[in-house]
């Protein structure tokens, strides 16, 4: 189970077709920008030399297939992993397409959500929303693949990151849906009354997280990044029951601009208010 390959058919199966409505809305965004940034974030983005262009989003409603799990076997459910990955990738790609339509350099404050609806059996909606930005001095900040960078950093984090001489290159993620074996009767009886480590569980949870993180790192390497900041590790059972868990690892890959950096000295304050 050390196969860390990403779902193979990624770039090919992504549609380049945004709904007509999306094109219409973006075409109307000329002298106006929209943004879900707070005022603080908006002003800091401006201070960092960027201008918000518009709110961009992508979504995909995805039906996840069925995969049989063995009751007593711990294993990755590759079909579900693939589904979760593909669906998010679809949503993110569409968001990037919207950003390209606005001729953006990147997208900040990206949020990834999963919605379940009552009418959609086994289907979930994956949404990506963020604010497309463009550098005011005309220098391109696109990533190695010529695509707008994506990042889930807040305006404050974005500004601070730029001060340190790094630039965001892309939101990278890795996921792994894992089925954790139920304990057999004999095992359970064997450990009754003993508080001992349960090595099978340890190993399963360990491996699942490692897989998710490795995949994320591989994505970052493909972007030629120096590192990943703000990594979050999320565990969700979605609608599969307690023994099937998705481990999602997500963060912003950053690259070093190589320029000389003089970081301002932070000021310490004690706030009495809370």
């Amino acid at each position: 189970m050390s196969d860390t390959n990403l779902p193979a058919d990624l770039p090919s199966n992504l549609p380049a077709d945004l709904p007509r409505d999306a094109g219409k809305r973006l075409a109307e965004l000329k002298n106006l920008f929209t943004s879900d940034l707070s005022v603080n974030e908006f002003l800091l983005i401006k201070q960092a030399g960027f201008h918000p262009l518009g709110l961009v989003m992508g979504s995909s409603i995805y039906h996840t297939g069925i995969q049989t799990r063995k009751w007593s076997k711990s294993q990755e459910l590759t079909k579900l992993t693939e589904a979760m990955y593909n669906a998010r990738e679809l949503a993110m790609t569409r968001m990037e397409e919207e950003a390209e339509q606005l001729d953006a350099d990147g997208i900040v404050g990206v949020r990834l959500d999963v919605n379940y609806y009552e009418w959609g059996n086994d289907a979930a909606e994956f949404i990506a929303v963020g604010t497309a930005v463009k550098a005011e001095n005309g220098v391109s900040h696109r990533n190695k693949h010529g695509k707008p960078f994506t990042s889930d950093l807040s305006g404050q984090d974005f500004w601070t990151l730029m001060q340190t001489g790094y630039v965001p290159q892309g939101l990278v993620m890795g996921t792994c849906v894992y089925h954790i074996a139920h304990r057999g009767l004999v095992q359970t009886l064997g450990s009754v009354g003993q508080n001992v480590e349960l090595p099978n569980f340890t190993q399963a949870l360990y491996e699942a997280r490692e897989l998710a993180m490795t995949r994320m790192q591989e994505e970052a390497e493909r972007l030629g990044s120096t590192g990943i900041v703000g990594v979050r590790l999320e565990e969700k059972s979605h609608q599969w029951g307690s023994h099937t868990i998705e481990f999602l690892s997500i963060g912003t890959a950053v690259g070093d601009t190589g320029g000389a950096v003089t970081l301002p000295q932070p000021i310490t304050v004690i706030s009495l208010d809370n």
Binding site: P19, D21, R25, S59, H63, G120, A123, E125
Partner: peptide, 16 residues
């Protein structure tokens, strides 16, 4: 594993 394209489009359009 399949994207339900008509659903995606309907919701996408509404949000847009």
């Amino acid at each position: 594993n399949v994207e339900l394209t008509n659903y995606t489009e309907a919701l996408y359009a509404a949000r847009e």
